[in-house]
Amino acid sequence: MKSQEGMTIIVKTVTRISVWLIFVYGIYIIFHGHLTPGGGFGGGVIIALGFLNVFLAYGKEYIKKWLNIGLLHDLEATSAILFVGIGIIGIAMTGGFLANFLSKGTLFRLFSAGTIPLLNILIGAKVGVALFLVVWSLSLFHIDEGGEQ
């Protein structure tokens, strides 16, 4: 019974279904950031909360198998670099840092507003991964015993 990590079977079953809906909702919020309320920050936190949901329901060992934590670190750093990269491309194309160099498109369409959706996606990935990593590293320690496990 040592392997009985996480919460009960009911919570695990519900999580298995609901977590994908949470991810879809987060991605929707990110992609529609230039049309509706929300955007990169809100959607990123929703994605982080989805990861957190799995983490709380299934426990540490499952997450270690399910996710590649090193890859998440890389993803976080990559999105920060790409943000600056888009800014530098803006200098090359139009002469201003972070200038909007893509076509504006039609108002109220999903693919419009130039670089704004791209930057929203990058911010969403960065915020989501970074916040999950903080909780992940905080949970690696049992500070009751005054030391790591």
Partner: peptide, 23 residues
């Protein structure tokens, strides 16, 4: 900017430096 959400337009276009600093 072509963005219907004006708050997004400000944080990612007019004042994108702010957002870069915030990131």
């Amino acid at each position: 900017t072509g963005s219907a959400n004006l708050v997004s337009a400000i944080i990612l276009d007019y004042r994108a430096y702010d957002t870069l600093g915030e990131v």
